[in-house]
Design a protein around this nucleic acid. Structure first.
Lengths: 218, 218
DNA sequence: ATTAGTCATATTGTCGACAAAATAGGCCAT
DNA sequence: ATGGCCTATTTTGTCGACAATATGACTAAT
């Protein structure tokens, strides 16, 4: 066995990942029906593993399942996006608060380094920032909270759904420069171990994102 | 078809409910292994439905599953309880905020009525309050938020876990009178449509509960 | 005595077949 | 035509069997 624990990957895992990717990226259209038999032949696995994969997708709120009827990919609505950001504001705000309390000094330094890297890239004219960079920034703070429930809910639960909205409603990389300043201030608050401020700044950051998205969609 | 939509109940549902109850009430001990075959014979269903039930329990964070090894009921630790209340503080705080915004006047009146009923019972010397009453109070505010993600996360996700801690660590009904006053103030804030205050009071209410529990356990 | 290796057993992962339920289409009555 | 009922087909729910992996016991070498 290797030094770092490597989880065994089962067939259901692979099917789950594949399906999730196809749904998030829009390969499988939002609101469409998921036929077990069809997916079974498409991915070359038995219906049992497809069912397990679909069950997990339901846990992520990416599909909705009704007994004896079947599973549909969730529909994307403005209402749903707003609700999603409300939860996100709450959870990530708490994550920032806990990160200010629980991140090690080394982790905070790493985070500052990440921010610097992003700064260089943005200065160099890259619009790349928003997609991977923003996700990475938020991801580190979530993990830095050291709260397993929080981490699970956000990483396994909400982030793929958020990404699905981003990809399919085509909101790629706006608000780059202002968002970067907000990130910087959040990191500063965490570095100062100012829990209250870190939470407040994160909540406002996400609130602004939400308002920005809402404005563009109406 | 009936007036109110009645969801079909599948066998996996029943097994899931049964297992969840057994775990929460401690009939199945925390940290113990769940053998698919054993449960299959015990409940008289096939392994497939037991597997589906266990998968759903995993979504609720009531069991942890490792590929090719099996599922164990989660272990109850003080650390875990603290993390749980941190998330709860965040989510229910947001629920109170949204309830202040989204509950109808009629729903708020109902909530006041519920509080009065509890008041009479407490005055009558019943210690019954905490268990059903507290849950009901929080439940109504969660639903009153009208945010499906929030509702799902709390009702399907966290509440059974919280109840598991309550039952098995034997913390039934303390803090009755003070908690009642806190509930009253929260309802007043919601009634005044004061979102900020409602959120703050709910967060403090849960924070107090957490501290109360922590104090008793050390 | 301890450790590594091997083999037998038990448990989980996957599959195809059957049962139950829902959907679709045609048929009949109005 | 329209609406309700019945049948045929499709889809999901459940089951038992087989394959792959982990667990535990036993042996042997150091």
């Amino acid at each position: 066995m290797n030094a770092f624990t490597e989880k065994a990957i089962t067939g259901a895992d692979k099917t789950f990942f594949q399906l999730r990717s196809d749904i998030v990226e829009g390969e499988i259209k939002a609101g469409s029906k998921l036929s077990e038999m069809e997916l079974s032949t498409k991915y070359g696995v038995s219906r049992a593993v497809v069912r397990e994969a679909i069950n997990r997708l339901e846990s992520c709120h990416l599909v909705e399942r009704k007994p004896n009827i079947g599973a549909r990919v969730v529909a994307l609505t403005l209402e749903g996006l707003v609700q999603l950001y409300q939860v996100r504001e709450s959870l990530e705000g708490m994550a920032a608060r806990l990160a200010a309390k629980n991140m090690t000094d080394a982790e905070i330094e790493d985070l500052k380094g990440l921010l610097n890297t992003h700064f260089q890239e943005v200065k160099g004219g890259k619009t790349y920032y928003q997609e991977a960079g923003d996700v990475d920034f938020h991801y580190r703070i979530i993990v830095g909270s050291k709260n397993d429930h929080l981490i699970s809910m956000l990483v396994n639960g909400l982030y793929h759904l958020i990404r699905m909205y981003r990809v399919q409603l085509g909101m790629a990389g706006p608000r780059v420069s202002t968002a970067f300043d907000e990130h910087k201030n959040i990191v500063q608050a965490i570095s100062n171990r100012d829990e209250e401020l870190a939470e407040m700044l994160m909540r406002r950051h996400i609130l602004y994102s939400k308002q920005n998205i809402e404005a563009r969609l109406r």
